[in-house]
């Protein structure tokens, strides 16, 4: 029995070393992968970041742009002022 446990302990120690080595290797590889992704991303040039992506729908041709809306509201405002 005692010998069995000794055997198991050796196996557990092997698992400890092998497991930790693998976890570190795998995640180190992933660090490399993230760097590669970042590098490719830079090479592909400026891409709309998430903030821009959210703002993008405003450029939809069927909808008036922010500038047009503000110009129109300014005009309406002025018109109402003059024709009171």
């Amino acid at each position: 029995m005692q010998q069995d446990i000794g055997q198991l302990l050796i196996e557990a120690a092997t698992l400890l070393v092998a497991g930790m080595t693998f976890v570190f290797l795998f995640l180190t590889l992933l660090i490399g992968a993230i760097h590669v992704i970042a590098w490719i991303n830079q090479r592909l040039g400026a891409e709309p970041t998430i903030e821009h992506a959210v703002a993008a729908p405003a450029a939809n041709p069927t909808e008036p742009s922010q500038g047009v809306i503000s110009a129109i509201s300014a005009a309406v405002h002025q018109y109402r002022k003059q024709h009171r």
Binding site: I5, E11, A13, L16, V23, L27, T28, L30, I34
Partner: peptide, 20 residues
Amino acid sequence: LLLGAAAQFGIFATLFGAIA
């Protein structure tokens, strides 16, 4: 990611402890 890897030491050390 290295920190996430190091914290897994808890798992493997406990495996050893459970056998002990």
